[in-house]
Design a protein around this nucleic acid. Structure first.
Length: 442
DNA sequence: TAGCCGTGGCG
DNA sequence: TCGCCAAGGCT
């Protein structure tokens, strides 16, 4: 067993890794050429996202937005639509903001210096290094999760790779490892090694091009490195949503709304829903009875106070869990009837009596949900919503969305075909597909 | 620094 | 079912 110096190890590492990479590298759409725009788009899409997932999105995106200019001038909703289902939607918004920066600051030509690239919206240390090295072959490290794992194992480093300071340290180390003139392939090879061989769970050391001098393997620690502190568990939220069916001119359509321009799922469309206080939700959700009147009342009240709409929850539709990185949504969906007159709370007050309200005269024998609707109408007349205690969330400012065309269209009745143009997060995509399918069968 | 920000696959 | 993980960045 030969002992190599640190410099000899680095030298050997580069040679073996590059030879291996040229032999096994995958044929990926963004490796067709070194067009910096394509590299940029691919690197943004690949953030926290698997290669197999990205491939079809990348091809569709490049077809629709083949140049920086086309992307910069596109409506944001079209960009989000192309990102639908990929997640982390601020990436798409930042990418387009970056494209606009390229148009304004660089005459539509992709910047070529490290500082200019790093200044683009949504481009951090990793993505900057990836673009500079892959597109321009500049010797700048691109340290992602793969590289941190691969390098931590090779040198048997005990640093916690969840800490930002560790990434800085590894960047300095990797920078000294880049073979002369080979930055483009070396950086990609490091990531390829992490993706194909030096995997998190069960590294395939026998196929590794640098196994002879990998300290983790020599010490039998390849399964315990790298060190990574655990992520916090996602908090649980119980939510009630409504599929409000339109009537009259909106017959056959469903009520959707656009989320605010900031925060979770920014700018995306959704079915209206509201957070339910934990204590109550625990009891109500565990009941055998799906159609809990209190839950129907909660979403009806939300639509009333938030959007001035009166709706009548009619029946339970389905329950659906959805897990984000940091939140778990336990959702219950109700089908609801919309009021044909689009009666507002204010107008309800002006009617002055139950008899003149479209929600009056409901046959209380039909279901307890209709009692809810009747109760809501009565609340409207009294001006004291009795289900307010259920709703555990401050109203979101849906009027603050800069993408809206007017102050009144945060809500919209849409037909199934309208979903082709509006971006929805996967959760609501699934529910709406299930809903349209149920209508088709009925 | 730590929390926010999606989604799907896998053991 | 559960936890971890995947070519991170922003605040």
């Amino acid at each position: 067993m030969t002992q190599l110096s640190l410099e000899q190890k680095k030298e050997m590492y580069g040679q073996n890794l590059l030879e291996w990479y040229h032999h096994i590298q995958r044929d990926l759409p963004w490796r067709k050429n070194h067009d910096p725009y394509r590299i940029w788009v691919s690197e943004i899409m690949l953030q926290q996202t698997r290669v197999d997932t990205v491939i079809p999105y990348f091809n569709a995106f490049i077809s629709k937005f083949p140049t920086v200019k086309v992307l910069a001038e596109a409506p944001e909703e079209e960009v989000l639509k192309c990102w639908e289902g990929l997640g982390y939607y601020s990436r798409a918004r930042n990418l387009q903001a970056g494209a606009k920066m390229v148009m304004e600051l660089h005459h539509g030509q992709m910047p070529t210096t490290k500082e200019e690239v790093a200044a683009l919206k949504g481009v951090g240390p990793y993505t900057c290094g990836a673009i500079m090295s892959i597109a321009y072959n500049e010797p700048i490290p691109a340290v992602d999760g793969n590289v941190m794992r691969v390098i931590s194992r090779f040198f048997a480093l005990d640093d916690d790779i969840a800490k930002p300071s560790t990434r800085i340290k590894l960047e300095k180390l990797v920078e000294t490892m880049i073979p002369q003139g080979q930055a483009r392939y070396f950086n990609q090879a490091l990531m390829e090694l992490g993706a194909l061989i030096c995997t998190p769970k069960s590294p395939n050391c026998l196929l590794c091009p640098v196994m002879e001098h990998c300290e983790a393997r020599l010490q039998g620690r390849e399964h315990e490195l790298p060190i990574k502190s655990k992520a916090k568990k996602a908090r649980v939220e119980y939510r009630v949503a409504a599929i409000v069916e339109g009537q009259g001119e909106h017959a056959g359509k469903v009520l959707v709304r656009q989320r605010p321009a900031e925060g979770l799922l920014a700018g995306m469309w959704e079915l209206p829903h509201v957070l339910v206080a934990d204590e109550q939700a625990a009891v109500l959700y565990e009941s055998e009875l799906k159609e809990q009147p209190e839950l129907g009342r909660a979403i009806a009240e939300e639509l009333h106070t938030q959007h001035g709409l009166l709706v009548r929850p009619r029946q339970w539709f389905c329950d659906q869990d959805h897990i984000f990185s940091h939140i778990r949504w336990n959702m219950r969906f109700f089908i609801a009837d919309s009021d044909p007159e689009q009666l507002t709370r204010l107008e309800a007050l002006e009617f002055g009596s139950n008899e003149s309200s479209p929600l009056a005269g409901i046959n209380a024998d039909e279901s307890n949900l209709q009692e809810v609707a009747a109760g809501l109408a009565a609340d409207g007349l009294k001006g004291t919503p009795s289900s307010a205690a259920l709703v555990a969330e401050k109203p979101m400012d849906y009027t603050a969305n800069e993408n809206r065309q007017s102050s009144k269209n945060e809500l919209r009745f849409i037909a199934q075909k309208d979903m082709d143009s509006l971006p929805f997060p996967n959760l609501f995509l699934k529910i709406l597909q299930k809903y349209w399918q149920s209508k088709g069968e009925a």
